Amino acid sequence: MIRFIITRLLLLVLGLLIASALIFFTLRVLPGDVAQVIGGTQATPAQVEAIRKSLGLDRNIFVQYTDWVSGLLRFDLGDSLVTGTPVAIEIAAKLSVTLPLALLSLIFGLAIGIPLGVVSAIRHAKASGAAIAISAQALAAVPAVWAGVLLISVFGLALRWLPTQGFPLDGWDEPGRAIRSLILPALTIGVIEGAVLLRFTRSAALDAIGQDYVRTAAAIGLTKTRALVSHGLPNVMLSVISSLGLQIAGLIVGAVIVEQLFQLPGIGRMLVTDVGNRDLPKVQGDIFTLTAIVLLVGFAVDIAHRLIDPRQRTEVSS
């Protein structure tokens, strides 16, 4: 097991290194001059060159990359070109909104996808099971913007149950208001991700129903539902855990869109603003942080799967 963890940890470090290189060099080949943007249209070539030198943009690009990576090792992402604030501090503040949003979205997705996926598998030969599967197929293809607008129209404007935009100025000092402001955005992401998770769960449950141990349990007197829940559900959950890495990536991408729609001060909305401002250090920091979260979740899922799956534990011990 230790060997497995070390291998996965090395792959994680390699993935972060490759991601840092892709992010850094891709941003450097995009059109536009950061120094010119900062200097404005009235800046002279000499002034633009002075700005470029002060930012270190005149140095060799590989030297710039090495300096940035060495800063990452110290959790130093540089300073914003617009505000002058350390990028790490601004990202930490935005993550206090984005991470709870992603967690709440995941809870909604699991609450929707797992029960309905099991029901759809058990009733796969009936109209209700087929209806659930078709509905999940349709929901998985719905753009997050459309789902958000629909939820705003129903629960925010028509019923007036929940706030439709913004986040408390005091943040989590008002936990009740903060959670209420995240419910609709989290539902927007969670419903779509839940539909995707439902399909994974249904497929795994159908496979489990066909296994000998589930059919034997049903033959000795258990109903199909009890046989699946008692004997097949652990294997179903292993498949669900395996899909969580992809689900988290979907949650992060969804957060970028949903934070704009609901005017939430999270890292996704900040990324859109930073791209418009050509704030290169912040754009680098934003994208690298989101990428690191996805890779770290994938690493945690791999370890959890190895620990939970008895077959893999047997392989390790042998």
Rank of each mutant, 00 (worst) to 15 (best):
V191A: 06
A204F: 03
V214L: 14
L246A: 09
N277T: 02
G166C: 07
I134V: 09
L162D: 02
V87I: 09
S153G: 08
G166Y: 04
V63D: 13
G129N: 07
T7L: 14
L251Y: 07
V149M: 15
A21P: 13
A88R: 06
G298R: 08
A304W: 00
E174L: 14
Q165T: 11
L27Q: 08
D274V: 03
F200D: 00
V87A: 13
I179W: 01
A292H: 04
Q42R: 13
G232K: 03
D274F: 00
F288D: 04
T289A: 15
D309P: 00
F4V: 04
F108A: 14
V240C: 12
V275M: 10
D33N: 14
L295T: 00
R278N: 11
L182C: 07
I192C: 11
S128T: 11
I287V: 15
G221W: 06
L9W: 08
S54D: 14
P281C: 02
L264C: 10
R226N: 15
I18G: 13
T216D: 00
D302F: 02
D79L: 14
M237A: 11
T66F: 13
A121Q: 10
F200G: 01
A140D: 03
I303G: 09
D212W: 07
I134T: 07
L77W: 02
I209D: 05
V283Q: 03
L169E: 09
W172D: 11
G148M: 03
P310F: 04
F75Q: 10
D173S: 15
L12T: 01
L198V: 04
I6W: 10
A131M: 11
I183A: 02
R123S: 13
S135V: 07
G32N: 02
M270I: 01
T44N: 03
V229S: 13
F75W: 11
W161A: 10
D173K: 15
D79A: 14
T201C: 15
P234I: 06
L228Q: 09
R269D: 10
L99C: 05
T225M: 14
Q64C: 07
L228W: 09
R3A: 13
R215L: 15
T291H: 04
P163G: 08
L261C: 05
V69P: 05
G166W: 02
P143G: 05
R199K: 10
G276F: 00
A35W: 11
F262H: 03
L159G: 07
A35Q: 05
D170E: 12
K53H: 12
G15P: 13
I192W: 14
V214C: 09
Q284S: 07
I114A: 08
R59G: 11
V87T: 04
V87C: 12
L9K: 02
Q47I: 04
L238M: 10
G78V: 01
M1H: 07
G194R: 04
T188K: 05
Q36F: 12
L162V: 00
L27D: 04
I209V: 04
P31I: 06
T7P: 08
I303V: 13
G117L: 08
I308D: 08
L197M: 12
I152Y: 04
P143A: 00
L162W: 00
W146K: 03
A205R: 10
L151D: 06
T98S: 15
D33C: 11
G39Y: 12
P265A: 09
V256L: 12
G166Q: 07
A43N: 05
A217S: 11
T85Q: 14
D67W: 02
V142A: 08
D279Y: 07
V191R: 01
L197F: 12
S20G: 10
R52E: 10
I5Q: 11
